[in-house]
Every structure is written in C-alpha cells, then in structure tokens.
Design a protein around this nucleic acid. Structure first.
Length: 214
DNA sequence: TCATTAACACGGG
DNA sequence: CCCGTGTTAATGA
C-alpha cells in the first residue's frame, strides 16, 4: 500500500512535530515527489498550488535579478518547508523566488485547501507553519546581514560552511564559476579568495572539489 | 583600494 | 582538445 509507505516516510521526519492523526491525514491526501540534483522545483513567477514538506535532501532558495545574475538566499533542510509557498498559497500570488534541489530531494506535496483546514484542526500544524515562517524570516534577515555587512571573503566562507553542512560532507563539489554565480561575483575573485583560504589552511583545493578543513 | 573584464598559460581527463 | 584553474594587466567605481 502506497499510503502506508508515505506514512512511514513522514513519520521518520515529522513524528516529533505532528500528532499521529495529522501524519495519517497527510499520508492519505498528499503525494511524494522525488527530485534529482539541480532540478528546478519552483520557478520565479509561477503560481503555487501545493506546499512541499521536505523529507530528504536539501533545497536552495535563489533570488534572481532581472538584469544580472542570481543570488543564493538560504538553504532549506529536512523537516523544513518553504516560507515563500506559505505566503503564496494563502495569498494566491506568484513566487518571488526559485527553488532548486541541492542534492537528491524527496518531498511531499500538500494541497492548499488542506493547509487551511489543518490550520484550524491541528495545533501542531499551526505551530509548525508559524515556527517555520519565523525561522525563515530569521534566515532571511541573516542573509541580508551577510549581504550588507560581510565582505566577499566572509560570504564565501559562510557559503562553503553552509554547503558542507547541508551535504553532510566536507567536500564541496563545485567549480569556482558556479560559486561565483551563486554569490553574484566573478570567478577571478572566487579563485583568489579560495587561494587565500587555502593558504590559511582553512580549505584544500582540488580540481572540481573543495575540501573544508577543521 | 578592490572588483571586474579580458587574456593567457598550465594541466588533467 | 576542452574545461577548470591560477595569474596578470588594464580599467573603473
């Protein structure tokens, strides 16, 4: 039975957050979706009819400038949801961000109507939505701080540490060009800063791979 | 001063 | 040979 499998999957991540009845109801009414690495899950300008709950993997949230380049805002990890979808679903507006799978992602899609229903029916759901909204807001403020007050070398180091944390590995498999794109700068700068970090023995550089030490 | 752009050399796959 | 990387020189904010 597929629903039973969904139930087990949900339980792994959410059993401490939602009551049993809610998990059962999610399993019954929602569908599991899988994404490979670097797939676009939500596109800028698209309307959102379903809300994703993350079961496995990580998603990066990117803001794209009309004129030039994209900018990484933050990552979403297991047990989180996307705050943007919350506002979009409830307000029926377009998405202002793009969501891309950072690695292999498994998530469960919840219909908007259910969201609203559960807000009233389940206290844990209400808390979850409010809490995730709150934590996203904090992440966003942190992202703004990073942008406004940190220099590029600090931003780069934060980026590397975030990456390492999300993928649960000290090896970051990215080219300098890709990093430059996500931080909205040029490759020369990234190469230079990475080299500087390597000289400080904070990282080790290989081809296509950056090893984070410590 | 520091980022960007362009250009080039090196080397691994 | 192509791509990722390291470096430099010129230019601009």
């Amino acid at each position: 039975m597929i629903k039973d499998k969904n139930y087990e999957l949900l339980k792994l991540t959410y059993q401490n957050i939602f009551e049993k009845e809610l998990i059962e109801e999610i399993a019954e009414t929602s569908s599991i979706k899988d994404f490979k690495k670097d797939e676009v899950i939500i596109e800028i300008g698209s309307y959102i009819k379903q809300m994703p709950l993350l079961l496995e993997g990580a998603i990066k949230i990117i803001r794209e400038d009309m004129i030039q380049g994209e900018l990484l805002l933050y990552f979403i990890e297991r047990g989180d949801t996307c705050a943007m979808t919350l506002t979009c679903c409830l307000g029926k507006t377009k998405s202002e961000i793009r969501a891309v799978s950072e690695n292999s992602v498994k998530l469960i899609m919840v219909a908007v109507e259910k969201m609203e229903e559960w807000m009233i029916k389940y206290k844990s759901w209400r808390n979850f939505v409010l809490a995730s909204y709150n934590s996203r807001m904090n992440e966003l403020l942190l992202a703004i701080d990073t942008l406004a007050f940190m220099k590029m070398d600090e931003r780069l180091l934060k980026y590397l540490k975030d990456k390492a944390k999300i993928n649960q590995s000290n090896l970051i498999k990215n080219t300098h060009q890709e990093i430059a794109y996500e931080l909205n700068t040029s490759r020369v700068v990234i190469s230079r800063l990475l080299k500087a970090l390597e000289n400080k023995s904070i990282i080790k550089l290989k081809r296509n791979v950056i090893q984070l030490l410590q």
